[in-house]
């Protein structure tokens, strides 16, 4: 199963808006909660009340960017599997556990086949795969494949747990194969970008860059004074009140 499909019918994925993400980590924990209880083995934690290390499918980094002039900007940076078109993690897998779905392009690990060799995690440039130490199988974002088609959920809830929970609305889910979809339009309008394009993975997930910051000094013209001291001000006030 490690051959990649030549094309997929749909290209489901996420748009992550770096202009809006406040770094609250809600998506991280919603993902942990859903995927602990659902698809495959639970996301385990080692030494959870000591020096902990656990499995997460989505993690939020943060970076400071220093522009040439002006103050440094801080960008929160959520990262989960980007469901790459040319997913190297799939083709390296010896057991066939890793595969990309033909119908929607979701990259999954079939845990009943995985031998936990870790090679797919090595092949992924984004750090999107984590080997679960308790179960011994590779875990990764499933794009909530067990939510998005799940008719046990109300229709409006058939979206990834991380998208549903994001308080700032910085995460968007949809079909990139459809040029009119919300995610395709956002990507176009806001210059959505690929991470590490040089790696040739052709990620499906797109990132919207932060809008320009600290522009206020170049905005409105400065105010014109009507008066410089209280008496002048009261004269202006009288006239202004007349006009009311």
């Amino acid at each position: 199963m490690t051959a990649l499909p030549a094309t997929t019918t749909r290209q489901l994925g996420l748009v992550i808006d770096l202009d809006t993400c406040v770094g609250c980590q809600a998506c991280v924990i919603a993902c942990k909660g859903w995927n602990t209880e659902n698809y495959g083995a639970p996301l385990s934690d080692q030494d959870p009340y000591g020096t902990p290390s656990g499995t997460f499918l989505n993690r939020v980094h943060s970076y400071e960017v220093q522009p040439e002039t002006g103050s440094a900007q801080l960008v929160h940076f959520p990262k989960s599997c980007l469901h790459c078109e040319d997913a190297p993690c799939v083709t390296v897998c010896p057991t066939g556990a890793s595969y990309k779905r033909v119908e929607d392009g979701i990259v999954l690990v079939n845990e009943t086949d995985c031998m936990g060799c870790g090679l797919c995690a090595w092949a992924c440039p984004y750090g999107a795969r984590e080997l679960d130490l308790a179960a011994g199988v590779m875990k990764k974002c499933t794009l909530c494949v067990d939510r998005i088609y799940n008719d046990n959920l109300p229709e409006e809830d058939r979206e990834p747990a991380c998208v549903r929970t994001c308080p700032a609305g910085a995460r968007h889910f949809g079909d990139f194969a459809d040029p009119d979809s919300h995610v395709s339009r956002l990507t176009k309008e806001r210059d959505g970008m690929d991470l590490m394009p040089e790696q040739g993975t052709k990620p499906v997930n797109k990132y919207l860059p932060p809008r320009p910051r600290d522009q206020i000094d170049v905005l409105a013209p400065l105010l014109n004074p009507v008066a410089e001291e209280p008496t002048g001000f009261l004269r202006w006030l009288d006239k202004a009140l007349e006009r009311l």
Binding site: C24, Q73, A168, I216
Partner: peptide, 13 residues
């Protein structure tokens, strides 16, 4: 400049 202040268009430190 973190959190809400990081996404603010203008940061007044």
């Amino acid at each position: 400049r973190t959190g809400y202040n990081a996404v603010a268009d203008d940061w007044v430190g």
